[in-house]
Design a protein around this nucleic acid. Structure first.
Lengths: 246, 246
DNA sequence: TTGCGTCCGATTGTCAGACACTAATTTTTA
DNA sequence: TAAAAATTAGTGTCTGACAATCGGACGCAA
């Protein structure tokens, strides 16, 4: 005999509702920004109870496909990168990824970002980039501030590439890695200096439109980072305690 | 006067519950695999109704922090990569990312994966990799099958790196890109041949432990892919219709 | 003992109906 | 006409309930 018993997945009502709405969002029937009917109306439409609708909506809301600017208003929206980043970071945290893992990936994403940025950055972005850098230089003895500024510096570069795939891919990695920087910073003070220098070069290369150079300096910068991590003996350590939130 | 009124976020009960449980999961109070109390019990614990608990749970479930192997059993678990991948892919779809964006990122992740794999692959994995490849060779005239096998090939390589960060970062990108392959495949038949050859080289390099070579071939492979996309005139086209589901 | 069918309780998915509170809207008032 | 008040709609939460089904316990046969 050859009876195939694929595990048929039961479809709960709330799941079906989420699925159905999602489908309509994805195929463009409902566009981002558009408003959705109230819960009662939805319940009637689908022929279920409000509770059931709510569970479904909760799911979409959590997926970032819909959101409530005010509790009263429910509208379709494009998933925000931050929401995805948060989830991804949390997942990585739970998986206890090591600094090495993070670094290996950053080692390719950050240079790529720098490279692409050099070719696409606009004049306004140039001045903003310079501004961020200036802020970092000004705060170079303030470890706190630096820890906060560094990720912003790199994220900004990534954003100038306008490559949303890159932005989404690197964000969680960068978040965790640079957060790890917080642990390294106190140990390796010299690194702060080198960092400023590297940033300097990156900024100049990007603004000059020299993609190769920007990439090279970005790579060096991340390599440097790795040395600091190593010196601090954190290479194979989980990037952070899971207690931290995102 | 200097009264700072930071917009205190209203905390809905269901949100608080999700948050609280999540916290306990993240800080290790409840470990993956452990079972959670039933809904009624949870409701009592938090002093709310079952409906409220359910909405909260739905959130965690959706986050991949808990899941139900059977509807009756609710247990803590590590976020599954697939869940995150699906979300990320969906987001990218809605953002209508272009093939160019995907390709640019794949251009660094895939070679990295090949490189790392070469240094870490085990004997069992080698034979499995060879098996997948053999399957592809066997199915080289079956476009359908190839489209299905190709992503598996690359994902498998990524998995042998054991770098979860890389795995998570590249998965959504690869999914979309190789899915785009489905659109290109019919147009560019020659590419299928070249693909097999490239895979061949990648497999050999990885199994021989030659990281550099593996990386080089992976890069060529992705470059090839790009040519095919270009030839098909899809470079700046959104990687796929948003109607597709994930 | 092992395997199998049967029964019971526990728990879930879903439902119905209700109420307080607040944002949005309309109406009234100054 | 603009501010204030009243109305309304819609959400967040609750109570209470019911059928389906899953997890076992139990008992019976091989």
């Amino acid at each position: 005999m050859s009876l195939r018993g694929r595990p048929l997945k039961v479809k709960y009502a709330y799941y079906q509702i989420a699925d159905e709405i999602q489908k309509q969002i994805l195929d463009g029937s409902i566009k981002p920004g558009e408003r959705l009917p109230g819960e009662v109306e939805l319940a009637e439409m689908f022929g279920v109870t409000r509770s059931t609708v709510r569970e479904g909506l909760r799911q979409l809301e959590n997926d970032g496909l819909v959101h409530r600017p005010t509790p009263r208003r429910l509208e379709v929206c494009l998933p925000q990168v931050d929401a995805l980043t948060a989830r991804a970071s949390r997942a990585m945290a739970l998986m206890r990824v090591s600094f090495r893992d993070l670094w290996q990936v950053a080692m390719v994403t950050e240079p790529l970002a720098a490279n692409l940025a050099a070719g696409l950055i606009t004049e306004e972005e140039k001045s903003e980039l310079r501004a961020i850098h200036a802020e970092m230089v000004a705060a170079q003895h303030d470890v706190e501030a630096t820890i906060d500024l560094d990720p912003r510096f790199h994220s900004f570069i990534a954003e100038t590439t306008k490559n949303r795939v890159l932005i989404m891919a690197r964000e969680p990695v960068a978040l965790l890695l640079y957060r790890g920087f917080a642990q390294v910073a106190p140990v390796a003070k010299i690194a702060l200096q080198r960092q400023i220098v590297a940033h300097e070069h990156i900024v100049e290369a990007i603004c000059a439109g020299d993609a190769e150079l920007a990439e090279t300096w970005a790579r060096r910068h991340i390599e440097d980072f790795w040395r600091a991590i190593n010196k601090a003996g954190l290479a194979d350590r989980a990037a952070f305690k899971t207690a931290e939130t995102f």
